[in-house]
Design a protein around this nucleic acid. Structure first.
Lengths: 339, 339
DNA sequence: GTTGCAGATGTTTACGTCAACATGGACGGT
DNA sequence: ACCGTCCATGTTGACGTAAACATCTGCAAC
């Protein structure tokens, strides 16, 4: 068994020999420079095709000090929102000729993130997008390579880096107001984990909306985004006949709540109204179909990429945080309170 | 505004100067070679820390002809199964010191895949994992770089490359048998899209199981994996009082079916039993909680990675296809047929 | 004291690309 | 005919690393 050979493909020199020109001319053709005679260009292209030449990205990167790739530090990748956002990032980045290096962290601890960062920091990327739910990054203790552009997807204002996120506050307010306007005396809330900045934003905005309306502010139940935690919190809510409206911080927990409500025989939306947050593909087919706040992960991803590329290309400083609007989608889980 | 400078970090030469040794010694320290005096090693490490040295991966890749990174060509990334599998791949690959380059394709056409392949083929990766649902790859027309290791995640046997996948056939048979054993005369089926090899596998296995049991084989309904398509197919099924048991090719479509059943007032599992495929996190909280076939995306990802790394490191040829077993998880959506 | 050897360290070179500079031929103006 | 220009093309060198080879030191064996 031959040890795996380095498998080096044909290089510019090979093409040059094949086409009878210098390596430099091959380089010019490869980079689409104009100052090459048409006949020569054709000859070179033919040679490239013939021997199957591909530019060597390592040599290129070494030469120009750029990699044309960006790193994405991500936790909880299979999560609905994160996978959507990642997909959007990928889609936005590819047409620009960049590629994506994935750097998953299993837990959002300081150490893991810093580690991921320094791996990425081996100059293998031109910029980094950080997409980490629940991180407690202490900015000062991340060791940053000087000048590596970074964009954070998060509602937090704690960073010097550009920040992009869904307008959590507005979404939560809209959800709460929707329920209030339907005639409910107040709105209960199942929140996401307190380490999550998004969860905190939604919770605060729910409370503020209630206070603004002069409504009673019931105690918060907290889950961890999972359907199971929604079910658990929901079981307590379902036992209390006083609750007629619940704003749940994401659709998955809303699903758990729905189940708890069914099990205790409380009808939705007859007895209690539910609104979620996210608008997963499944939500339209929950029983009953869920009224929810749709957020555009696609827009978040797109904005993050354009901010990062701007930083990379022009060295631009962090501008205003970008906030992506949400949208209330009304389905069948909300109605006026029982008479 | 200064144009973004190449931002080159300190190199080995800088460390060498700082530590008063040659570049080669720095290289030895960086690579953990043993033949360096302890005192010298310490001095070099200190110098590295002091000036913030990071190895330059491009130069390294250029020098050794290896990138220590693998490419993943993926379509429909936000899909439940794909995001889980990708996460598993990432988790398996990182401890080996490899990183992942993501290459999304928007549509699984021949052209897109070939394009992704050739991008990856700029020697930027040491191997490739192809994770594409519904592709109709004509192997012969993919232009392969000579010797680039590839692993395909797919049940198809159409490839020369190593193949890894869930045991679709066994899972579907188990689901069908479960329903039959409960006493149902036959089992209906909502299949995935015919372009999907997994969907076809499940469909064929369902049919074979029915035939083996001497049961009537009802016409197949086909969806596209989405809850909406499950709802649509489900609406037709719900209207037919003869159907008492349905095996749905994935959990999302099962959710749609459940909704259709609720809307027409047929009880689950009282009137009709449902079993899905996948076991999403949500499935345990569907109403009623869904009996389904759990597949281990984690195992699939892990096996794909180890096959690929083996190929990369030893040049091993494609071995037997790896098949990952499934597991029936019984919840509340199945019961004996109505009396 | 010489020889030999092992282990630490230094020097040279090549990996593939491309910017910078060098060359050389064609052509226009005088 | 002479000079200057412009444009296509060639030559050189440097990016950061690490393998291969060279050198040097100290020490054990005789």
């Amino acid at each position: 068994m031959p040890a795996a050979s380095p498998r080096r493909g044909p290089s510019m020199a090979d093409v040059a020999r094949e086409a009878g020109v210098s390596g430099q001319t091959v380089s010019r053709v490869a980079n689409g420079k104009t100052n090459v005679d048409d006949a020569t260009r054709e000859r070179v292209l033919a040679a490239m095709r013939r021997i199957g030449y591909r530019p060597n990205s390592a040599a290129r990167a070494l030469r120009n000090g750029k990699f044309r790739s960006i790193g994405v530090i991500i936790s909880a990748l299979p999560t609905f929102g994160n996978s959507r956002t990642l997909d959007a990032i990928a889609a936005a980045v590819v047409p620009e000729g960049f590629s994506i290096i994935l750097m998953p962290v299993t837990r959002p601890t300081q150490g893991e993130v810093t580690g991921a960062f320094s791996k990425l920091n081996e100059q293998a990327v031109d910029g980094v997008i950080i997409l980490i739910e629940q991180h407690q990054l202490d900015q000062s203790s991340i060791e940053l390579p000087h000048g590596l552009p970074v964009v954070v997807i998060d509602s937090s204002a704690r960073y010097d880096y550009p920040v992009v996120d869904t307008d959590q506050a507005d979404g939560a307010a809209t959800a709460t107001r929707h329920l209030l306007e339907l005639g409910h005396a107040t709105v209960w809330h199942i929140a996401g984990p307190p380490q999550s900045y998004s969860a905190e934003r939604r919770r605060k905005s729910w409370r503020a909306t209630l206070e603004l309306a002069g409504a009673f502010v019931p105690p918060v139940l907290v889950g961890d985004w999972s359907p199971a935690s929604g079910y658990e919190a929901g079981s307590r809510l379902a036992a209390d006949p006083a609750v007629t409206a619940v704003f749940v911080a994401n659709d998955q927990m809303a699903l758990g709540l729905l189940r708890a409500l069914h099990e205790t025989g409380r009808s939705v939306p007859g007895d209690v109204s539910v609104v979620g947050f996210d608008d997963m593909e499944e939500s339209a087919h929950f029983w009953p179909p869920l009224t929810t706040i749709r957020q555009s992960f696609e827009a978040v991803g797109r904005h993050a990429v354009s901010a990062l590329l701007a930083e990379i290309e022009t060295g631009a400083e962090a501008g205003e945080p970008v906030t992506v609007p949400t949208e209330l989608v009304r389905r069948s889980s909300t109605a006026p309170p029982p008479a």
